[in-house]
Design a protein around this nucleic acid. Structure first.
Lengths: 78, 78
DNA sequence: CACCATTTGTTCGTATGTATG
DNA sequence: GCATACATACGAACAAATGGT
């Protein structure tokens, strides 16, 4: 996960775009768990809240589902 | 929480007045936690910094005490 | 049952950049 | 220039839930 400072988009939008792509290209298949927030923080260098905001976008889009204390999973049905 | 654009007072002063009243009228009893900053943002439509500024007024007045990562509580002693 | 690691969620404090009057 | 206000972001501490040992 690489966040570009020169990118016009906000960091949370950049991260969301990266994750969105990994879901659509099959890197994260339906039903699979995406990396935990902590891992995404480390990977991206972004903070807890910023990573969470990116994930929240995907949740709102119906791409992923978060299960507290379990993880965030790629949605199965479309 | 309703912020009136026509009010002569600044938004942060309006919000502080509302919270102050809720404390004095017992809506927020001594020792209780007032709504988190985020909730006040949503309720009032004001920004993070503006809500924070209103709360800071109450802190300065000794009406409330903020405990980082815990919440803001109505002061017990007078 | 107690204990612990993992993971999502909450909350305050602070900082930066931008816009408006 | 200054005060006010908004949007975004980071850091840190803490809470709660789950599942394993």
């Amino acid at each position: 996960v690489r966040i570009e400072p020169d990118d016009i988009r906000w960091p949370y939008e950049q991260l969301a775009a990266i994750l969105r792509e990994r879901i659509t290209d099959g890197t994260y298949p339906p039903g699979s768990r995406i990396p935990p927030i902590q891992a995404l923080e480390a990977e991206s260098g972004l903070s807890n809240m910023t990573v969470r905001r990116a994930v929240r976008l995907l949740v709102d889009e119906g791409l992923v589902i978060t299960r507290p204390s379990r993880g965030t999973f790629v949605a199965r049905k479309r």
